[in-house]
């Protein structure tokens, strides 16, 4: 394992993030997102221009100051929002106005359907796709057991804790066997201990499925612990100012936080982010 380097000077905004060797799963080229103005409000450029390449099977985290366009990046990548300029590709095909097959998204907010049981929530996507019930049962059983929800299969989301509901949303996405998993601050509302444990589960999931994972987070330690590479975004309009390769082995878990290199990675992320966060605070204060 190659230890990460010490904090180095911040790269120029607009750093192109290339995936290096390996097959490319996702490619963003010259992507910008500008929200049109309304009335007296001028248009707002939320994102870019930015370039990004993710290797197949890679775990990539994105950190950045509040309001820097992290979630906009995820929406554009998922096909939930159209970029104002630039191109987005998933497995070589352009992503337009719809979420491509093979892409799963887990949102920051609780997105579980409160009128369905845990089991029916998990089966929701498969049922809509017309998958045979027997196969649904198998895949749902596996997913809810994997996410530690087996004992709550017949419970409703209102009977679960926040962490369990988020695990349910992951299970609902997991059963669809996504090749690209987009996680938009899925643990944002959880306490620190639960977040560390959820991180372990996501790592386990990532290893088992072999999916490419993009995690949006505001927690530097979470990004440093989970990802192979961490992209640091600037204040709005969000662009990559640095990409930190963590160098962790594939077999890893939350105990990695005890390593001295973990502190170095987190310190480098923060040294990059500090000025940007102050910039973001001064524009929103």
């Amino acid at each position: 394992m190659a230890p990460p380097g010490l904090p180095r000077p911040v790269a120029e905004p607009g750093t192109a993030v290339t995936g290096g060797p390996g097959q490319c799963a996702v490619r963003l080229a010259g992507v910008t997102r500008i929200y049109p103005g309304a009335g007296l409000h001028p248009p707002v450029q939320a994102l870019g221009p930015l370039d990004l390449e993710l290797r197949q099977g890679e775990f990539f985290a994105v950190v950045g100051p509040s309001g820097c366009g992290k979630s906009t990046l995820l929406d554009v990548l998922a096909g939930l929002s159209r970029p104002t300029s630039g191109t987005v590709e998933f497995e070589g095909r352009p992503v337009t106005d719809r979420v491509p097959e093979g892409v799963g998204v887990v949102f920051q907010e609780d997105a579980s359907f409160h009128w369905l049981t845990v089991r029916d929530n998990a089966a929701f996507g498969l049922r809509r796709q017309g998958v045979p019930e027997r196969e649904i049962a198998e895949r749902v059983d596996h997913a809810i057991a994997f996410m530690g929800l087996k004992a709550f299969a017949t419970a409703y989301p209102a009977q679960l804790s926040g962490g369990m509901r988020q695990r349910l949303c992951i299970a609902r996405t997991l059963v669809l066997r996504p090749r690209l998993l987009l996680l938009d601050e899925p643990f944002g509302a959880l306490d620190q201990q639960t977040r560390l444990l959820m991180g372990d589960e996501v790592l386990r999931l990532w290893r088992e499925t072999g999916a490419t994972v993009l995690l949006i987070t505001h927690a530097l330690d979470e990004a440093a612990m989970l990802a192979d590479r961490v992209g640091v975004m600037s204040a709005r309009p969000g662009r990559f100012i640095d990409v930190v390769t963590t160098g962790w082995p594939r077999e890893r878990d939350s105990t990695i936080v005890a390593r001295p290199e973990f502190g170095q990675v987190t310190a480098r992320l923060w040294s990059n982010l500090r000025a940007e966060s102050m910039k973001a605070m001064s524009t929103t204060a």
Partner: peptide, 24 residues
């Protein structure tokens, strides 16, 4: 987020109305 989830789960507008908006 329910409507966004429906899109993320590849539902058509009709399926979204029937399986998400109606029960919600």
């Amino acid at each position: 987020v329910h409507l966004k989830s429906a899109r993320a789960l590849h539902l058509t507008p009709a399926a979204t109305a029937l399986h998400v908006i109606l029960p919600a």
